[in-house]
């Protein structure tokens, strides 16, 4: 790890209501500009780990620092400002199907109050980067699974976040499409974005030779 950690976990555990312990005693750091893949079987705690970074869940014990901020003790009102510096890519895409491809990508820029002219320019640039500019007026429902995932990535990076988090981005994609999606993550990492991807698809990342963290039953192996 060459750089100072931009994400750091210190003795982090997460216990859900009902007693299920998803993570236990997790310690690690991710340096700025690193490309990290978190692997493990289904239920190993990969998604929970990413949710803790994005303040979607709160750690039961321990400290989660993101960009120097203690996310595990963060007030509700502060969370949106943390997330504006994160790009989130979801397995189920979380796209808005009553809006066009362009409107989905421009949404994060509207949230931060960007002028429409600048927002349009940046949204088109993001769509171009993932190869979807020609489909900007289409409805996301008319896109294939791989295209929807690329659209989700475009929405995640349009704000130029310093950290990109992706939860099982290739879960429902064929091998070739999965490899192209992973390649997109690598290209963002190459321009300095810290990328953390949770996946169980080892085949898709074999070519990338990234840093690997393996979770097993809520513990780092």
């Amino acid at each position: 790890m060459a750089n100072a950690p931009i994400i750091s976990f210190s003795e982090v555990s997460k216990r859900y209501p009902g007693g299920y312990e998803a993570l236990s005693g997790i310690n690690f750091g991710v340096g700025a500009g690193e490309l990290v893949f978190v692997t493990g079987h289904s239920g190993a705690g990969k998604s929970t780990l990413l949710k803790l970074v994005a303040a979607i869940e709160r750690a039961s014990t321990g400290t989660v620092l993101v960009g120097g901020q203690n996310v595990s003790a963060m007030r509700r009102a502060a969370k949106p400002f943390l997330r504006r510096n994160l790009g989130l890519v979801f397995q189920d895409h979380k796209l808005l199907y009553d809006r066009s491809v362009f409107d989905n990508v421009v949404l994060p820029l509207q949230v931060i109050g960007q002028s429409m002219k600048e927002a349009s320019r940046r949204a088109r640039a993001a769509l171009d980067k993932v190869g979807l500019l020609a489909r900007e007026k289409a409805n996301p429902l008319s896109l294939s699974g791989g295209e929807q995932q690329r659209l989700c990535i475009a929405r995640a990076v349009v704000n130029r976040p310093s950290i990109l988090l992706a939860d099982e981005p290739t879960a429902s994609l064929d091998q070739e499409t999965a490899a192209s999606v992973m390649e997109i993550f690598r290209s963002f990492n190459q321009v300095g974005v810290t990328v953390v991807v949770a996946t169980h698809d080892l085949a898709a990342i074999a070519q990338l030779q990234p840093r690997l963290m393996t979770l097993s039953k809520g513990r780092l192996a």
Binding site: A54, I56, R76, A77, P80, F81, L82, R83, R84, L88, K94, L95, L96, Y97, L107, P108, V111, I112, R155, N159
Partner: peptide, 16 residues
């Protein structure tokens, strides 16, 4: 509901 959830995840404040 979906729009609200997505908005929260991409950094929308409660006021927004």
């Amino acid at each position: 509901r979906d729009e609200i959830e997505v908005s929260r995840l991409i950094g929308a404040t409660d006021s927004y």
